[in-house]
């Protein structure tokens, strides 16, 4: 297990280095780093000082080392707009985004799993066909437009739920207050839409495959009730791929929250990055990208570990 973990950590490190290179090249080679990293308002002397401080007068490979050194110290530059360290700015906005992404994941599982289970257990029923058609729609509908429609129907027409913002927060979390929770519902559903379709499809195909396995037939031959066979023998087996994929998708959920946050004016990292791109606050963009990459790597790692906890075959291989 330890060897396995170490190997995974090493792989993650490689990916991190590769991605830092890409971001570095994006900033330093494609764009003009002086323009990207130094505020356009800075005067000549400030510019010169900043160029030396950032090491922009040195060869490219040295610049990369400086970039990495700074990044390791948590210094990813200062925002032009807020005049705050970019990293700090992003970390402040992170809880809002995490909350949204987790809310969406919860919705995806709560809605997708039962629907997928139903569609898998009764594949020829009308309900299953409707569910599958719905999941195609969930894949094709553009997130931002669905978000608008949700606002139009539930906030404007029906007036049931608030349209934008986070509402009241407690210790920085919306879901801890009733008002904040009501603000969280529509954005979570919006962000969950794609994931619900994904979970439905995964669950359905998982159920259909597992139902054909000998061990399911054997479980029935033991005289177990239908429910026990479905909810213990089948369900536990499909849970592994579903949890893995949903977990892996957390990264892309966070990435796609860019759209949802913009639609619902949700003050998270995604809204921040869009605003930053629009005003060319590039240190924030760079910091955001590095944070997201790091997040991806951590998520992949955690999912791998969870996977091994869920699946005894993987868990015990490492021990032996």
């Amino acid at each position: 297990m330890t060897v396995y973990l170490l190997r995974r950590l090493f792989q993650s490190l490689l990916v991190l280095v590769a991605m830092s290179l890409i971001v570095f090249v994006g900033v330093y080679a494609v764009g003009d780093p002086v323009e990207i990293l130094i505020s356009p308002d800075a005067d000549q002397a400030e510019r010169a000082r900043a160029i030396v401080a950032l090491g922009l007068d040195k060869p490219l490979w040295q610049q990369y080392l400086v970039f990495v050194q700074n990044a390791l110290r948590g210094d990813l530059g200062r925002s032009f707009v807020y005049n705050e360290p970019a990293l700090q700015l992003i970390l402040q906005k992170m809880p809002a985004t995490m909350e949204l992404a987790l809310g969406a994941t919860v919705f995806a599982i709560l809605v997708g799993l039962p629907l997928g289970l139903y569609a898998g257990l009764h594949p020829d029923s009308g309900g299953a066909k409707a569910i599958m058609a719905g999941s195609i729609l969930g894949f094709s509908l553009p997130t931002f437009w669905v978000g608008l429609m949700l606002i139009m129907v539930f906030a404007v027409q029906l007036g049931w739920l608030p349209s934008t913002g986070r509402g009241d927060t407690l210790w920085g979390w919306s879901f801890l207050t009733p008002n904040g929770l009501s603000h969280l519902v529509l954005p979570s559903i919006n962000l969950a839409l794609f994931k619900i379709s994904l979970v439905i499809r995964l669950t359905r195909s998982g159920v259909r495959e597992t139902m054909l396995m000998d061990y399911v037939k054997f479980a029935r031959a033991k005289g177990l009730s239908r429910n026990r066979v479905t909810y213990v023998h089948v369900f536990k087996n499909i849970l592994i791929p579903v949890v893995t994929v949903v977990g892996l998708e957390l990264g892309s959920t966070i990435a796609f929250s860019v759209v949802t946050e913009s639609v619902f004016a949700w003050p998270g990292m995604g809204k921040l990055i869009i605003d930053s791109i629009n005003v060319l606050d590039r240190p924030v963009i760079v910091a955001y990208l590095m944070i997201i990459v790091l997040m991806f790597i951590v998520i992949n790692l955690v999912v791998d570990i969870m996977y091994s906890v869920l699946d005894p075959r993987v868990r015990l291989e490492g021990q032996g």
Binding site: M213, A219, R220, A221, K222, I240, P312
Partner: peptide, 19 residues
Amino acid sequence: RGNRIAMIFQDPMMTLNPV
């Protein structure tokens, strides 16, 4: 089933639930 009449399957690698 499994009470008065029991069944044993062909492939022992497949008959027990792996998880």
